[in-house]
């Protein structure tokens, strides 16, 4: 994301490591079946997100709105239509049971956890840094890394192009067509030039990169170099403690009995 923010210790963590830790955490979360434990872990991650992303609070709150949405929509489907023994409520096809309610909450919290982890990452990591680090630490081939960086640069250009195409269509009289068939026509009129234009531009940039002697050798030097630091240890430690403490608390002080 291209919004400015203060630098916090989360920004200083090695990007590959950060990504790796978050993905591992996601995998672990897939195996957490205990609602209490899930809630604890989610709270721990939320804390990280709210306090250390370095972005102003109002922006964070704005970005959090979709979270509630995700939580509600993910859990509601499960709650309303799930199977279970202990029936709480039944109306037509809808049946809420205790089991389905708990499972719904579990799924909802998991979706919330994933969303927060993802946003924390993208708010505290510059894509360019991530790809430089991936080349250095994970040995990602440069041709993939630089392609990604070039493509990300193209995103704002594509969005602007969309606006321009709209204007061009207006000049040429496309907007004046009416009816269902024109809807199809308009969709085609917008999407095809956008897509084919992007492909051509991508091709041109690739040619320009090769004209600048881009090669895929791995012994290239790097403008940004990434290593590991104390922050990285702290980061790993935070999650280890979170997972252990969360488990302990969920056993000792459960909020809900299942």
């Amino acid at each position: 994301m291209n919004v400015s923010s203060a630098e916090t210790w989360l920004h200083k963590i090695n990007p590959s490591l950060k990504l790796f830790v978050l993905i591992v955490l996601c995998m672990v979360a897939l195996f957490i079946k205990d609602l209490n434990y899930m809630i604890n872990v989610t709270m721990g991650v939320l804390l990280l997100f709210l306090c250390f992303s370095g972005h102003p609070l109002n922006r964070i709150l704005l970005l959090s709105i979709p979270f509630c949405f995700i939580f509600l929509s993910t859990s509601s489907a499960m709650i309303l239509f799930g199977q279970g023994e202990t029936l709480w409520f039944k109306w037509g096809l809808i049946s809420i049971t205790e089991e389905s309610f708990m499972r719904g909450l579990l799924v909802g919290f998991r979706a919330l956890l994933f969303a927060v982890l993802g946003l924390t990452f993208s708010l505290t990591t510059r894509p360019v840094n991530l790809f430089y680090s991936l080349m250095q630490q994970v040995k990602l081939k440069p041709k993939y890394a630089y392609s990604f960086m070039a493509a990300l640069r193209l995103i704002p250009i594509m969005l602007e192009e969309f606006q321009t195409i709209r204007n061009a269509m207006r000049v040429r009289g496309v907007e004046r067509k009416k009816g269902i068939r024109s809807l199809y026509f308009k969709m085609k009129a917008y999407s095809i030039p956008l897509l084919s234009g992007s492909i051509r531009r991508a091709h041109r940039i690739a040619v320009a990169m090769e004209a600048k002697r881009f090669s895929d050798t791995r012994n290239r030097t790097y403008y940004y170099e990434f290593g590991f630091s104390k922050n990285d240890h702290g980061f790993i430690l935070y999650f280890v403690i979170l997972l252990l403490a969360g488990l302990y608390l969920s056993v000792q002080f459960p909020y809900l009995s299942i």
Binding site: K143, Y144, Y146, S147, F148, A150, A151, L152, L154, I155, M158, L159, L194, L195, S198, I199, R201, A202, H203, I205, A206, V207, M209, E210, F214, D216
Partner: peptide, 20 residues
């Protein structure tokens, strides 16, 4: 394997769909 051109074009197509 894929050439730089192939990769970049693929990724750009993909990113366009990412927006979609």
């Amino acid at each position: 394997g894929l050439k730089l051109t192939d990769i970049l074009v693929t990724i750009v197509i993909a990113v366009a769909f990412g927006i979609v």
